[in-house]
Nucleic acid binder design. Structure first.
Lengths: 222, 222
DNA sequence: CGATGCCTACGTGCTAGCACGTATTTTTTA
DNA sequence: TAAAAAATACGTGCTAGCACGTAGGCATCG
């Protein structure tokens, strides 16, 4: 509460969300918090990276997981790779096992649900900025509930969907048959089947039914 | 620009969305607009109806379509029935044919995407409050693209999913097989197949793939 | 009362999806 | 450069999903 701290009593933030409404909502929620300063806001992964070039000092990147184009997870990875000093705080509607695991594995420092209050959000940001972690209650429950993820923090397999798989997934979601997909991508139908099988395994689904739900939750259908 | 208008230069608004962040975002987006006044905000359909009892003069209800519990569509209908003076402006992430059609058929006066800017949102509200309609560009495109909906504005068939079908749909979404569903509901597998066939027809899907997407978009999986 | 809509149910037949196994080439990473 | 991951590909075999046709019991509504 004194002015003794050397440099940054102020935490600089970058907001990333494709919905202007949410960005605005967060901005306004944080306005009363004098120590939290939003220095930039982006509407997509690519833009976020550009902004980071300009503002390399950003302390915390608050990013929405579900965005068209580059996904939140990809962006998180990119940030970890290019700006090791920046802390990533994920913001999402959902808190399913796999998503939470992916965020952790991508180097995310925290995970806040979009249902969070002003207080919770600012607490999370401060905690993360201070080098700690923060997880919304429900997310923490998910973490505890599933020891796989706890393990995932150190060693376990995060079933990352590859770009190619994602491509196949999008076509599947458009109700294309394996044959149609094969013809569209100039590959064998067998290959499509293999990709599909791998997707089912990675998403832990019994059939397309689960696959589509995964795809929608993770916003894989741009 | 003069003070000549008789009564309401001010438009009273009710916000309905289950995400505090979005509600807050909208509130703040509208703050600079002196003529738009948010008189109440609800986090669910039931609460919205209660608030309308207290504030019967609300001019525009801005409501999110995807909410847990009572869906946005149901709420829209309830509002049309109980408060004919209130105008309903739908707010959604998606703009697929069926959803847009349902909103129209439920008596919605407009449809704004969550990607809307402050300007677009306030324009939409004013237009709707004035007795007109407003549709985001992408939504309008959807409307034009599909003449079925244009027809739907006056007479056409809104393929309503029956309670039983919805029940089957939910079980399908949980990755149950037809046989499992049949046993769970004490009916024949054939019957399940029939329901499924009808669902495919009503949702205009080629397979479960489309069906699941419909279910998620319409929030049929409570 | 007839019409309409929902839930129920059967049969036949086709095939896309999926299981499970295996393997080569290319790219990325360590 | 060696190891790991991703993308490619084939074979065999089973079956759940779906198309298409048909129909009776039951409630509601005009």
């Amino acid at each position: 509460m004194s002015v003794s701290s050397v440099s940054e009593t102020v935490i600089s933030l970058l907001l990333v969300d494709d919905h202007p409404m949410i960005v605005e909502g967060i901005r306004q929620m944080l306005l009363p918090e004098a120590d939290l300063q939003v220095v930039a806001q982006a509407n997509g992964g690519e833009q976020a990276l550009e902004l980071l070039e300009v503002h390399p000092h950003v302390r915390v990147v608050l990013l929405d997981l579900s965005m068209p184009g580059m996904s939140g997870i990809e962006l998180a990875r990119a940030i970890r790779a290019g700006w090791p000093n920046a802390r990533v705080l994920a913001l999402s509607m959902f808190h399913d096992h796999t998503t939470v695991a992916e965020v952790l594995e991508a180097g995310g420092a925290g995970y806040v649900l979009k249902t969070a209050s002003r207080t919770e959000l600012s607490t999370a940001i401060r905690q993360v900025a201070a080098g700690g972690t923060y997880f919304s209650q429900d997310v923490a429950d998910t973490l505890l509930q599933c020891q796989q993820i706890a393990a995932g923090l150190e060693a376990a397999r995060p079933p990352a969907i590859t770009p190619r798989e994602r491509e196949i997934l999008q076509l599947v979601a458009r109700e294309h048959s394996n044959l149609e997909i094969a013809e569209a991508l100039f590959i064998s139908e067998r290959t499509v089947e293999t990709h599909r099988r791998n997707l089912l395994a990675k998403t832990n689904s019994k059939s397309v039914v689960g696959l589509i739900q995964y795809a929608i939750r993770h916003n894989l259908l741009a």
